[in-house]
Design a protein around this nucleic acid. Structure first.
Lengths: 347, 347
DNA sequence: GTTAGCACTCTGTATATTTGAGTGCTAACA
DNA sequence: TGTTAGCACTCAAATATACAGAGTGCTAAC
């Protein structure tokens, strides 16, 4: 069956209407609301076709129609008019400028997005894969312990204390420091492979086992951030939407938001090819997490500087206002970009 | 009016019963259930007295009675039989032993408590007030920037990068390092007062403004942990209790759990004098946060080592099983104690 | 291809009606 | 004087009934 422009218009009208009301929308409503002036009966005929195509459905006889997942998908892919301009709330900028710490800023961002969209939001801390090692510094601590301070490009700092079982003289530590820095500096984390490791061990002479431990410590310190933290905000917004707040659904969604583990799964979706900010839309069953089957999720990638990036996501009912969400998320990304162009990487 | 032992027994029976059922309990039920063998009519008379004393109330005529806040308070203070022994689930120990990082451990703990009690739980990361400064190390970074690594007693490490606007020679940095360590080492954070600060500045000669910035950085790095993180778990348990899951209550509680700010308020309640673990019970309106008026909260203090301590809390309906909660929380605290006696402070 | 008309379906709301648990009170009893 | 049986009364929750309204599909006419 053909999807002519009138059918598209009707589908569009149904979705927009259902987004606001949350209730099945009937032929009479469409007839009045839509600019194409045809009678309800005609609309009904078209609706029957749309239903046959699997784009809409009626929850029961004698009710209006609501969009199916497939209908939403078509809407997002083809029908949506992207360029709606939002009157970016004046409060936003004010709030955003006053914060300094990165993670704080990101949380603020999530909060703001939740308030603006009235959906739940999540955001990951930045992940540093691809960043280069700037330098490593070992210092003595208590008996038999070393402190390793690891500085990455962009002045990200990690530290780790570990046991070496013996006391090293200051001189020996200095030598180790030199050795490590000569061999590792300027490498990105993925480049530290077995070849390099064995070379270092070779050069280290007697301290081979200590080098081993140091490298473990490096891997460990970096690995900590491997699974970046996820912050959420606006979970309570779930309750705004009856189709989510009834039954177990709310409970499960809240739980997922709290546990955070599954959220990383959603946020680590397929890498983007499409957009500058790699905006992805998951509708209903497409969401890669069981408990959010009744939701839609929109994710995007933010980038702070030289490859340091993270993900942000918005969680709402399937009838979420995709246009607004996409517009808002783009806007937010742009703000992040400008903020981080002004402000040097500090953390 | 006198609160004789029979009245106590009846109040006890009402509360225990209501804890399980969540529904008003009538005279007939008590008469059957309680070991004191008297007729429902007698119970009714006593109940009338208890109601007059403000310990129980009936939601409407022709319903059974439910405890008031005052009733719960009396129960917790006087009636509760503390020493119920729980068959500490075998899974607990297993789970607890395999984790190494402290914060991870604490989160596991919260999860476990939530699963065991079927209430929501929260836990703060450890707070380091009272710990001593071990040493400070300044190192050069990019142009005009210094990295300060601050090590506290118990090997807690903080770092901070800050701008000094000029480049210092290695020699100068070495001198600064010495100066700072000579003056600050061994002091606890609260002891670094204006007197000491001005003395350092005096000795620093030309670098007075830099010292200023370093001290700011120190304060800043430590201040980060001033407001320790709060982790929550088992928020979904709120939905188990109809009196909390209806209306806005659930939404507000969830929101409070997510935002975390108000939770610190609850957890930073009055310092304890009573118990080893300083167990506090807040009932209904006693909870110092508006959104949790319909809840009860039980908090306790855990201590890792030499004064490093934090708080843990359990949030449930007012009809929570106080005995079980208190027993479980004590048990958990003891486990924490033994774990941290074995394991050295690392993080 | 479009529209008016009509019978039909189904939900949601409002209104009685019933049921049952529980009470308070009174009077009898030990 | 404390305890108990009996009874009328109350109220919430469940059940049944009726009704209004929104929406549809189909047919026939335009």
């Amino acid at each position: 069956m053909e999807l002519d422009s009138r059918k598209k218009a009707i589908l569009y009208a149904i979705i927009r209407n259902y987004q606001e009301s949350g209730e099945p929308v009937g032929s009479r409503t469409i007839s009045k609301l839509s600019e194409l002036s045809v009678s309800p009966a005609t609309i009904r005929n078209e609706m029957a076709d749309l239903e046959e195509m699997g784009l809409i459905i009626q929850p029961h006889t004698s009710a209006g129609r609501i969009p199916t997942d497939k209908g939403y998908r078509l809407y997002v892919d083809e029908l949506m008019k992207e360029e709606r301009h939002l009157p970016s709330a004046p409060s936003e900028d004010m709030l955003l400028r006053r914060v300094d710490r990165v993670e704080e800023l990101l949380m603020q961002m999530a909060k703001l997005l939740a308030a603006n969209t009235r959906y739940a939001t999540m955001i990951t801390g930045p992940s540093y894969s691809g960043t280069k090692l700037k330098y490593i510094q070992l210092s003595p601590m208590d008996a038999g312990k070393l402190l390793a301070v690891i500085v990455l490009d962009g002045n990200i700092i990690k530290n780790n204390v570990f046991d070496i079982g013996e006391n090293l003289s200051d001189e020996e530590i200095l030598k180790l420091n030199l050795l490590l820095n000569n061999n590792l500096n300027g490498l990105c984390l993925e480049e530290i492979n077995l070849g390099i490791i064995s070379r270092i061990k070779e050069q280290s002479g007697a301290h081979e086992d200590i080098v081993s431990k140091v490298l473990d410590a490096v891997a460990d310190a970096i690995g900590t951030e491997e699974k970046p933290h996820v912050y959420t905000s606006g979970a309570r917004n779930i309750f705004r939407y009856p189709e989510l707040s009834g039954g177990d659904t709310a409970s499960e969604i809240i739980s997922t938001l709290e546990e955070k583990e599954d959220l990383s799964v959603v946020l680590s979706g397929p890498p983007g090819l499409t957009d500058k900010h790699d905006i992805q839309v998951y509708i209903g069953d497409e969401v890669p997490v069981e408990s959010m089957k009744d939701c839609s999720v929109v994710t995007a990638t933010y980038e702070l500087e030289n490859g340091v990036q993270g993900k942000i996501g918005i969680i709402g009912p399937k009838r979420m206002d995709y246009e607004k969400v996409v517009a808002t998320i783009k806007d937010t990304m742009n703000q992040l970009d400008t903020i981080f162009k002004k402000q040097d990487g500090e953390q």
